[in-house]
């Protein structure tokens, strides 16, 4: 069974998912960050593939991507870093990256290598559902990877159902119109949006992301979802972390529990 499905079938508490950019802060920190997050009690991880032009990201993830690229990070290197990771952890791993680097690597090769490296799911925010269904769905599904799509406050009802049909594992609920790294408004409008999505009869679990930076945010969105993703707040912490990466990560994760 895909580890993402296993997680949502077995975990009753809200799922804490943490995003980090591969190759940041140091090129070879990937493994250490994964294992520390697992040890600290995170439930799922999203590994960001750095891109030169990340239009859906705010300044924090933009900067981490630029530094990761300067460090020499690439998809090929990431797969090498992940070799053997499944001997050490069973935490669900999702790759999140922009479509252009993935297409240059080759979708078929990308899925095969990701699967071999122990990856469970993919998020490609600038790959629209129509293109996916036409050209890539068969490749991704044949590999056994789960493709995860995003829903937003601007997603109309018919698209919502299409996204539910095409997504596997979970659906990424974007909390508000904006790039990553904003703040959770907690407005009535936002609450109405969460309730609306919750009532839409979606079959896949919902996991909220964008703007979740502390326990209060986390608890608030998890009233409506099965879990939430923390990204920019974690990257900010990594940027300020001292040499005890493992200790810093444990402390960060604990603060959400």
């Amino acid at each position: 069974m895909n580890r993402i499905d296993h997680l949502f079938q077995n975990r009753e508490q809200p799922v804490l998912s943490v995003y980090f950019t591969a190759g940041y802060p140091g090129r070879d920190d990937t493994r250490e960050i994964i294992l520390s997050l697992d040890a600290a009690g995170a439930d799922m991880l999203e590994i960001g593939i750095p891109f030169s032009d990340p239009v859906a990201d705010g300044p924090v993830i933009q900067d981490s991507s630029a530094i990761a690229l300067r460090n020499g990070m690439s998809i090929g290197l990431l797969f090498r870093q992940l070799q053997g990771i499944r001997d050490e952890t069973a935490i669900p791993l999702v790759l999140m990256g922009y479509v252009n680097p993935v297409l240059q690597y080759g979708m078929e090769r990308f899925c095969a290598d990701a699967k071999a490296a122990g990856i469970d799911g993919l998020i490609i925010p600038d790959l629209p559902v129509r293109e996916y269904a036409l050209h890539y769905k068969d490749i991704v599904e044949a590999s056994g990877l789960h493709m995860i799509f995003l829903v937003t406050p601007a997603t109309p009802a018919d698209r919502l159902q299409e996204i539910d049909r095409l997504s596997r594992g979970f659906i990424y609920l974007v909390t508000a119109a904006g790039t990553t790294g904003g703040a959770l408004s907690g407005s009535d409008e936002q609450q109405a949006y969460f309730e609306h999505i919750g009532r839409s009869g979606l079959t896949q679990p919902l996991v909220a992301g964008f703007g979740i930076s502390n326990k209060q945010d986390f608890n608030r969105v998890c009233q409506y979802t099965r879990g939430a993703i923390v990204g920019s707040a974690f990257i900010r912490m990594l940027g300020a972390a001292n040499t005890d990466l493992r200790g810093n990560i444990a402390e960060f994760v604990q603060a959400f529990r």
């Binding site: 239009v55 859906a56 479509v99 925010p125 600038d126 790959l127 629209p128 129509r130 293109e131 799509f149 995003l150 829903v151 937003t152 406050p153 601007a154 997603t155 109309p156 698209r159 996204i163 974007v174 119109a177």
Partner: peptide, 20 residues
């Protein structure tokens, strides 16, 4: 109809902009 000239074009934008 989908904005393609031969194999070039399309609309590879994040979901939030699809409605726009």
């Amino acid at each position: 109809e989908y904005g393609y000239y031969g194999r070039f074009g399309g609309a590879f934008v994040p979901e939030i902009l699809q409605a726009n």
